[in-house]
Nucleic acid binder design. Structure first.
Lengths: 356, 356
DNA sequence: GTGAAAGCGCTAACAT
DNA sequence: ATGTTAGCGCTTTCAC
């Protein structure tokens, strides 16, 4: 591309070519101070004749003490995280909000399994003004610890409220309670639940009492609490390694082929719920006549047709935007308040009266 | 998070606390020169007692003249780009290759439609050592032009070979020819083709001669050329706005419900092909008895069961890794050669003999 | 409206 | 093995 043998011109080169001082040349580009139109033009012309394409971001960053970079730590390996529309839609909202503010997103992979080092080296040493943890995890998250040590402010999605970080979340506990109550109202009593991962270990299967006590991830814990808020004690709490259709299907196969199967399955995500619906079809159970299935997120899942999932809709893009605004506030030196966005129950075709 | 009122310590603070010079303190962290173990320990202790968490990346970057950032321009809005497993898997391979080299990925959205500005501001001004264009587009791509002006070296995926950029691609022309020949061998003569977008306009529908002449995107052009290499002239060339199932379905509905429908449809991606298969089922056509459908990419699509797509498998993760290595070479000052990775025809259940 | 000077925090020659 | 020195390229007071 550019001729690497010849040094790129600097602002000083441009200034001397235009016969002005560096500080004036700087003003010509930044517009951050008074400058005569003629001078400005002269500088810009000198720049273009030298092939100078604008101030070197590295110099600017050091001088300003800001990188313009927001590190986004996704909750999993990218490959897996991006299979989840929930993560992608939030990221899209976030990037869209950040772009006009001249802030870029640095992608940082979260730990996919416990065998890997818990913290990506980028977390330790990459330049970033703020970090966003797409999946808040636990309060003693090693990533959060590393950021604290570096003095990098953090915004958590769905995390535990903490004095030194900003948390953006939704009313998932209330949402889960609503959808569960909807099932109870339909007469369901034997209700199983399929959850998001408990921790980095990402086990798959029914969780026993000990496992339930060790539940580390806040989002999973809150959604489970929402179910219990209605007085319902799930017949089975089925833990999954990731919010993906295949894990929902595995859960569905196990739960629905057991001897005293539940009449309803509440899932902590729509992808998991879709998997359960597919499993039910596979087994030959009718939804919702034989079994009701509910999800969480409010994704658009046309391929589930003719079924439309009963779910709790959360404002995904808005969540990303809210995070973006929080980031902007932090960079402006403010301390944004924690936010809880509302959710709304959306009744589809996958829930109905409990079988007699 | 960190106490913003008190200035963060610098290497100079640590050095003086440890009673050594800054350069020695630097060595203690970088290990880039000889240093007595005792001195090193002393520096590290001073650092930890001051709450110094390592050299400020901004200073290091300016000094080194490198940011450690690789800008990745995705070929669309993030929301849409990440619905395509092809992009995600490549990105995953790329990030995985870059991480051990201490390089981070800066996400840059491509233009989703012509109404938006063609170049994200990050392309113009963000710090990056190399840029990767996930979808190479045209040779006069405005993004590429901006990068050239800045002197940022670029790696293109599936782009037109050019003297000043590195292109990593696959033998898609040959692959397309192979799969088309497979259909010809099965007796098909009326073959339609469903393509990737032609350009930023992202039209949807049959392309006429004028439109075909204006085809801008290299990848689409090459795959179409592969079909023609077999001597087959498609009955219809159907253009789509993006490689997504819904656009394949739309194409399928139109093509398969037309009066003299084709006996085979070759698609430029697996997602498009899946859409065509779904449309065929919808219309009541049997695959492959009534119509054969072939894709391209080699994705794992379990939800298409019981069908398994006939497709051309490309090494997606390896593609990402290859790009990563090219990036590393560029940073090392080398000029990597263009690469063309092999593809392999994988025959599934969606292609069969032409109906009598 | 323009220029001079200082310095952001660091690394890498070079000298000792 | 350690210290001295010189910037990397820029923005921002502060004078004029």
């Amino acid at each position: 591309m550019a001729d690497l043998s010849t040094q790129r011109p600097t602002l000083a080169d441009v200034a001397s070519a235009a016969g002005v001082s560096v500080s004036t040349a700087s003003l010509a580009f930044s517009g951050a101070g008074p400058i005569a139109a003629a001078t400005r033009t002269r500088v810009l012309e000198a720049a273009s004749s030298l092939g100078y394409s604008g101030p070197n971001p590295l110099g600017r960053q050091l001088r300003r003490g800001r990188s313009g970079i927001v590190g986004v730590v996704v909750g999993d390996s990218l490959k897996r995280a991006f299979r989840d529309p929930v993560a992608v839609q939030m990221l899209d909202g976030l990037v869209g909000t950040l772009a006009p503010l001249d802030l870029g997103v640095l992608l940082i992979a979260g730990p996919s399994d416990p065998s890997e080092p818990p913290v990506d080296p980028l977390v330790e040493s990459a330049a970033m003004d703020v970090a966003v943890l797409l999946w808040g995890g636990t309060s003693d998250d090693p990533v959060l610890t590393a950021l604290r040590r570096r003095g990098v402010p953090a915004v958590l999605l769905e995390g535990t409220p903490q004095p030194d970080v900003t948390v953006v979340g939704i009313d998932d506990r209330g949402g889960m309670a609503q959808v569960t109550r909807h099932l109870v109202d339909l007469g369901h009593r034997r209700i199983a639940t399929v959850t998001l991962p408990f921790d980095r270990d990402r086990a798959e299967g029914p969780a026993d009492a000990a496992r339930l006590r060790s539940l580390a991830w806040e989002i999973t814990r809150r959604r489970l609490a929402g179910v219990r808020d209605t007085g319902v004690e799930p017949t089975v709490v089925w833990e999954t390694p990731a919010s993906l259709v295949e894990h929902g299907a595995a859960a569905g196969r196990a739960l629905l082929s057991a001897p005293d199967r539940p009449t309803a399955v509440v899932c902590q995500s729509d992808l998991l719920a879709s998997g359960v619906v597919l499993a039910a079809r596979e087994i030959g159970l009718r939804v919702p006549e034989d079994v009701s299935v509910a999800g969480f997120d409010g994704l658009d899942l046309p391929w589930l047709a003719p079924d439309v999932l009963t779910t709790v809709e959360q404002p995904l893009a808005r969540k990303g935007e809210t995070v973006g605004h929080a980031v902007a506030q932090i960079i402006a030196g403010e301390r944004p308040a924690d936010t809880e966005l509302p959710v709304v129950l959306r009744i589809g075709t996958t829930t109905g009266p409990a079988p007699a």
